[in-house]
């Protein structure tokens, strides 16, 4: 087999990688020890960042990509895939993560945006990207830029699931509304939601997003995770919800089991028993306009 016959970084490989995460839980971790806890609990991947969103919120200031030394320690600590976050538009942070060998990059509103006009051109990277979205138009714009996976933005670091619910309902609801529309009607929808026609059409035909669609932003309990699965998520990201809980090990295992048993209330009841306190959390209605993260990006 000649080496030149190996094709890397194709759309099939990028979207295929995301498909392997389906039905799983991806956990935010800030060091190797947390990464091992996440892997042991059954996470399908970990997301490396310098602080969990709740702490980023509390600390204020500019939030940036994590220290490459810490990311490498995390990559050495676990055999599951390691993802890491870059600022919106910061393609050099993305090039650095690709050079490190990170398995997926999250162009994330949780960090302080580096570019207020342009998201990263993700098509030119070999490594796949996941991006946040609040509605179908935003999701399809990111896919058009090369995102291989979408997650709801929710409102990170709050432990309040209502924004993730709002975003998932918006995306799934609009997809259902597309059903049976003619090409002329889909052209109008594409214009209205600011997304390319070809992806609107593909979404209508598949009756789902053309890429894997996870829930994220405010998931704090097994019941929250199961709720997002019921609303149509392919899997969940849990950020502060695990390592801000009273017992991260118990909470992490319980959320993994909840995602697998989301349609069995009697099992969920069993899973939810005696977990200790969930993260304290923050009602998103109490946030001021500049404390809201989901409005970053467009």
């Amino acid at each position: 087999m000649k080496l030149e016959e190996l094709r890397h970084g194709t759309e099939l490989l990028k979207r295929g990688f995301a498909k392997m995460q389906k039905g799983g839980v991806i956990m935010d971790v800030t060091n190797a020890e947390q990464a091992r806890v996440a892997e042991e609990a059954g996470a399908v991947a970990v997301m490396a960042l310098h602080a969990v969103p709740a702490d980023i919120r509390a600390a204020g200031g500019v939030a940036r990509m994590a220290d490459p030394a810490v990311i490498l320690e995390i990559m050495d600590a676990v055999t599951i895939p390691v993802m890491a976050k870059v600022r919106i538009g910061h393609f050099v942070e993305a090039e650095i993560l690709e050079a490190l060998g990170v398995d997926m990059i999250d162009e994330s509103e949780v960090l302080t945006p580096a570019d207020e006009r342009y998201h990263i051109d993700k098509l030119r990277f070999t490594v796949p990207f996941v991006c946040g979205a609040r509605d179908l138009g935003e999701a399809l714009r990111r896919i058009n830029e090369g995102a291989a996976m979408i997650r709801t933005k929710g409102e990170a670091g709050t432990g309040d699931v209502k924004e993730a619910v709002r975003h998932m309902r918006a995306i799934m609801g609009t997809i259902r509304e597309l059903k049976g529309k003619t090409d002329e009607e889909l052209t109008k929808v594409a214009r209205d939601i600011g997304a390319p026609f070809e992806f609107v059409k593909e979404t209508e035909e598949m009756q789902r997003l053309p890429v894997v669609n996870f829930a994220a932003g405010g998931i704090a309990t097994p019941a929250d995770a199961a709720l997002m699965m019921k609303l149509g998520a392919d899997g969940v990201f849990v950020g502060s919800g695990i390592f801000k809980a009273e017992s991260p090990e118990k909470m992490a295992k319980a959320i993994v089991e909840a995602v697998n048993n989301y349609d069995r209330p009697e099992v969920l009841a069993e899973i939810s028993k005696g977990l200790g306190g969930a993260m304290k959390g923050l009602d998103t209605h109490t946030l001021t306009e500049d404390e809201v993260l989901q409005t970053r990006g467009w």
Binding site: G9, P81, P128
Partner: peptide
Amino acid sequence: FGRQRESFETPLKIDVIGEKPFNAVFIR
């Protein structure tokens, strides 16, 4: 074969399914 960066597609020869190579997708 390495991490996701090294994942690849390649035409793979598998005699039991015939002459034509199979487009094999290797992900991590």
